[in-house]
Design a binder for these strands. Sequence first.
DNA 1: ATTTTTCTGTTGCAAAAACAACAAAATAAA
DNA 2: TTTATTTTGTTGTTTTTGCAACAGAAAAAT
Lengths: 210, 210
Amino acid sequence: MYVSFDIEQFIQDFSQSCKKVQIKSFNKNVVITSYIQKRDQLCILISGSADLVRYDLNGNRTIIDHFSKHDIFGEVFYDITTNNELLVESKENCEVLFFSYNDIHNKCKPNCKFHEKLSEHLPELILDKVTTLNMRIELLTKRSTRDKLLGYFNLLSTKALNKTFTLPFSLTDLADYLSVDRSAMMREIKLLKNENIIKKEGKKITLLSN
Amino acid sequence: MYVSFDIEQFIQDFSQSCKKVQIKSFNKNVVITSYIQKRDQLCILISGSADLVRYDLNGNRTIIDHFSKHDIFGEVFYDITTNNELLVESKENCEVLFFSYNDIHNKCKPNCKFHEKLSEHLPELILDKVTTLNMRIELLTKRSTRDKLLGYFNLLSTKALNKTFTLPFSLTDLADYLSVDRSAMMREIKLLKNENIIKKEGKKITLLSN
DNA sequence: ATTTTTCTGTTGCAAAAACAACAAAATAAA
DNA sequence: TTTATTTTGTTGTTTTTGCAACAGAAAAAT
């Protein structure tokens, strides 16, 4: 990761120093924000986890993005509003920092430490996001459910520096995240087990290949 | 778009002012750069168009990203190297500006105008990229070929402010971009025509729905 | 201007994925 | 700790997608 910047420390030190910045708390399974129009809002997840989900006209639910501690999200990243509803839903109790993208540029106050620091480090935060999105695209463009699963497992294995790792999702959510049918995915996981390509105990997965 | 910054002007004014910055020219259908390791490289496409493509072990070709004038790309956006080969291939004759991400922060020279300007505007450039990537993910997570096509057509229609628009791709490349089989996509396009949902004359498409 | 190559459009068939529906297990809530 | 809810695991059937192969059109190269 390129983010050398200590977000934790930054939030602790400076989030109180600017009145334009808000911290809000949310319970589990509530809507944190919805992407309706092209607003200016940027958010940093301080604690907890949340999903950006789309509900299409048929009621299908897709996890467009998954956020955990220190991830940034917000409507500012979306250009054109589609017909579908985009919601950020908390998966656990969450604390979220809200601020406005334009305030970073229109220098808040000459000595607002919060916006000064943020302005300095925003490129690395966003760059980090680009990296995540590119990985996601890598996965989604894979031809088959099998390749998506193995691609994702390899990713987690690489991150964990270990052939064994734990899924950060429920299997139901994993299917949404990989944009495949859950039962079809389960069938494929069973095949991967039978072919001794993976081992699975609950959410703990081990790659046996290579 | 959030990019108010005039890239054209910027490149003309400042690209000569810093020796660390290189401009290279490429013919059509050649490899501009390959993503092999986690390097520091950032590129801006000055003219022409190019694709970021993946060749997997089965020889399948997927267009991961499509770049046109003023798009930024580079290995800096990719975190973990997969087993697959990622190449940026020119689709037309291209001019590309190469520079290093870290140079932007490690202030090049006290009075290097190029890096100063770039540092100032990089967030909006990258933000723009995030927006594009998010749209792409929106498309790729659609359940069916039909939904992907209609999603993409709606996007182009919205961009063009018109029910009629022109595909920026060949149909072959469109299939790669949407990550679906070409013949299956052609079949779906035929159905959309038969059901009077779209009209198609070559690469000119009209949305008839709504 | 002619040849070569790429792109488009089509189709039958095979394979994969989605849909649907249900029981068992696990988790959360009362 | 009992009840309700969500998640997991499974399977038969239908639908969609991918594969393969080919001919004609268009574009590019010679």
